[in-house]
């Protein structure tokens, strides 16, 4: 099936009736996925939105439960359940894969995270194939294809005046069915697309998992320029670490979770003051190892870096993970310093 581009707004209106529709928007200069109808301009040509769509499933701040207390007693404690239907329209292959990675974290290994799983069940994803790449894009080096996101519910591909529309799951079929009045017969293949930035991940994960690598000088050299802000982690579509905190007012309050950053000193500091990752060397090491080695070791689903290039583009000091990958790749053996 195909959808004429001039019917896009009609399609949005149809979908917005069914669910909270998130589309790429530019709001106050920031591109992100925002509800259709929000004040701002549609940004379908933003190859990569500045902010990733992860907050649809994992909001930066998410209320978990609310409570009331009276002196020493807890009068009530009630879980907050969000069950609104959501559609992310226009998600790119890299961001789509980031959801696959978060699924592994939040839905497997013994515990299901209820807050995430409820949102995931109610989410339909419409991926759109890229037609151009940014200088910082390197998703194909990380095993992805910029024009195909196999796990998305619906795949769109730009064919000029039309989008080719292909349902890839049951949820996707339901959505295509909803859009049927606007669709036309027809098909078309997306033109292949290649990133200009290339990295070679061959052997990198294995080298990094070698315990000798942990004490390598490479970490000090790499981390030296880090200023310890959380930009990389907050623009990253796969950074999922969170904190749990509370907010109380009088005798009632709520517990919430919020994005946290492994780049912050407070992240691992324990109540007694001990911090197993006391300086930026340890923190950068942990972040890069998590992205490039630990995740694969734990979940067996490849790297936690999807090659979207956001951290490369936005790091205030240009601490570039692609240059780090190159550097590790060029090492003669794990743990060596040249």
């Amino acid at each position: 099936m195909k959808l004429a581009k001039n019917k896009l707004q009609q399609a949005f209106d149809l979908m917005a009736k069914e669910a909270n529709l998130l589309v790429p928007m530019k709001i106050e200069g920031v591109t992100k996925f925002a509800p259709w109808g929000a004040e701002g301009e549609l940004a379908m040509d933003a190859v990569n939105t500045l902010l990733p769509p992860k907050d649809a499933l994992f909001p930066q701040t998410e209320k978990m439960y609310k409570y009331k207390t009276r002196l020493t007693q807890v009068e009530s404690l009630e879980e907050i359940k969000e069950t609104d239907k959501q559609i992310i329209f226009g998600i790119r292959s890299c961001d789509m894969h980031s959801i696959d990675c978060m699924d592994e974290v939040f839905l497997t290994r013994g515990y299901v995270d209820s807050f995430y799983s409820r949102k995931k069940e109610n989410l339909t994803t419409v991926a759109i194939g890229c037609t151009k790449v940014l200088p910082t894009c390197f998703c194909d080096s990380m095993g992805l294809n910029p024009v195909a996101a196999p796990t998305a519910d619906v795949q769109l591909n730009d064919l000029g005046d039309y989008y080719a529309v292909k349902a890839q799951t049951e949820k996707g079929e339901a959505l295509v069915n909803l859009l049927k009045p606007l669709l036309e017969e027809g098909d078309g293949e997306a033109a292949a697309l290649e990133c200009t930035l290339k990295v070679n991940m061959d052997g990198v994960q294995k080298k990094l998992m070698n315990v000798k690598m942990f004490e390598s000088d490479i970490w000090q050299e790499t981390a030296q320029k880090c200023i310890g802000c959380g930009t990389c982690t907050y623009v990253c579509p796969t950074c999922y670490c969170f904190d749990i905190e509370g907010k109380e007012c009088g005798n009632e309050g709520y517990k919430f979770r919020c994005w946290d950053s492994c780049m912050f000193s407070e992240y691992t500091r324990m109540a007694g003051g001990h911090n197993p990752r006391p300086s930026k060397k340890e923190r950068v090491r942990n972040r890069f190892l998590h992205k490039l080695a630990y995740f694969e070791d734990r979940y067996g689903k490849g790297s936690l870096c999807v090659g979207c290039g956001r951290c490369v583009a936005d790091c205030p000091v240009d601490l570039d993970i692609t240059m780090f990958i190159d550097k590790v790749g060029a090492l003669k053996e794990a743990g060596s310093n040249d």
């Binding site: 974290v105 013994g110 515990y111 995270d113 670490c241 904190d243 946290d260 492994c262 691992t268």
Partner: peptide
Amino acid sequence: IGKCGRCN
């Protein structure tokens, strides 16, 4: 429950 990331 192995989700929030900090105790690795």
